[in-house]
Design a protein around this nucleic acid. Structure first.
Length: 200
DNA sequence: TGCTGGATTCACT
DNA sequence: GTGAATCCAGCAC
């Protein structure tokens, strides 16, 4: 039960469903010859249309260009000049949907993660949070536009299935009456996992 | 050509 | 809990 997620996984049109499906999957990076991996425990969905929080909301620019590409690519964005945020581009070409991977549980290459983060020992904060996670895995803007079926960064299915009841969604209150962008944030995390931010 | 603010994190009060 | 650090894309002039 170890395989890279197929191209079809990313080109589906329901970005929220993909966000949930990504929970429990293994995110691998091979940066500078150092293999690192972790289980995805927290994600957030961004919809290219009607979602003001999304960079690519009706704005096609050089930076967001890859979001408009076909699913299965990496979109890496430098935030606050310090933090690299890693996104999985989804949906078909022309639809700028993406899933922000916010946190992982380290499973492989722990020494490298600690080194990159300059941590003396393992703490949940090592990979809890999009900026921290990217730093631990060595994700930088060099990975912008990388194919997730390539050999630098990819996602594998190890047969872990997260039951619907163990997925905590964090929509806004009154979501039933809200329109599309009021659903933000489409944030999903695995219940009880130490590497996600505490549930509120 | 210059200014503004951001999908954050960490240190300090 | 609050604020600073810090780079660049996007927009205004």
């Amino acid at each position: 039960m170890t395989k890279k997620l197929p191209h079809e996984f990313y080109t589906r049109t329901d970005v929220v469903q993909i966000s949930k499906d990504l929970l429990g999957k293994y995110l691998f990076t091979n940066v500078g010859g150092n293999l690192s991996a972790g289980i995805i425990v927290e994600t957030e969905a961004y919809c290219g249309r009607g979602d003001k929080a999304c960079h690519a909301n009706n704005k096609r620019t050089p930076r967001t260009e890859v979001m408009f590409a076909e699913g299965g690519k990496a979109y890496v964005y430098l935030c606050y000049g310090i933090h690299h945020l890693f996104n999985v581009v989804t949906n078909v070409e022309g639809m700028a949907d993406a899933v922000l991977v916010r946190a992982i549980e380290p499973v492989h290459g722990l020494d490298w993660m600690l080194l990159r983060r300059q941590y003396p020992q393992l703490k949940p904060a090592l990979t809890a949070g999009p900026g921290a996670m990217s730093a631990a895995l060595g994700i930088t803007t060099k990975l912008y536009g990388q194919d997730l079926l390539g050999d630098t960064i990819w996602i594998e299915d190890h047969g872990i299935i997260i039951p619907e009841k163990d997925i905590i969604a964090s929509p806004r209150v009154g979501v039933q009456y809200a329109k599309e962008d009021a659903l933000r944030p489409w944030r999903f995390r695995i219940r009880g996992n130490a590497y996600t931010s505490p549930a509120k």
